[in-house]
């Protein structure tokens, strides 16, 4: 499974009907079980490995996995998006356990915790 939402860490973004991971998936592949208050990847076979869901999760509850057919389990790649500055720190652990980190510049664009479905997006709290 390309990405996996850890049910122990996912808090459903509290009462969010459409949490960020669900909204940022370009394939509409993540759904939220509103009763259990957990999000999950419903269609793993359609995942593109593009990672917006992983990067946007405020709880870092979404793990990025390679499809098993591509290589052994054990290696990890974890993006830590800094919510206060324009960088991402990627933590890389290879199959031998060696760790390496990369801090890469980006542009922080805030993502709201929920969003109404049918309203058109207006110019709201974002200024250029």
């Amino acid at each position: 499974m390309p990405v996996w939402i850890d049910p122990d860490l996912c808090n459903g973004c509290h009462g969010s009907r459409q949490p960020p991971c669900l909204r940022m998936c370009p394939g509409d592949l993540i759904v939220k079980d509103q009763t259990a208050n957990k999000a999950y990847l419903k269609y793993p076979e359609d995942c593109w490995d593009c990672l917006p869901c992983v990067k946007v999760c405020p709880e870092e509850a979404i793990e990025f996995h390679l499809s098993y057919q591509f290589g052994a389990k054990g290696a990890k790649l974890i993006p830590h998006v800094h919510r206060t500055n324009d960088t991402i720190t990627w933590e890389l652990i290879d199959i031998h356990g060696a760790k390496e980190t990369f801090t890469v510049p980006t542009k922080l664009i805030p993502v709201a915790i929920d969003e109404k479905i049918e309203e058109a997006e207006q110019a709201i709290d974002f200024s250029i």
Partner: peptide
């Protein structure tokens, strides 16, 4: 090279790490 892939195609970096 790995940093460049992180900006676009992170699975490349994980693939290399997973396959040594």
């Amino acid at each position: 090279l790995r940093a460049a892939y992180l900006d676009m195609y992170p699975s490349m970096v994980l693939y290399w790490a997973a396959n040594g």
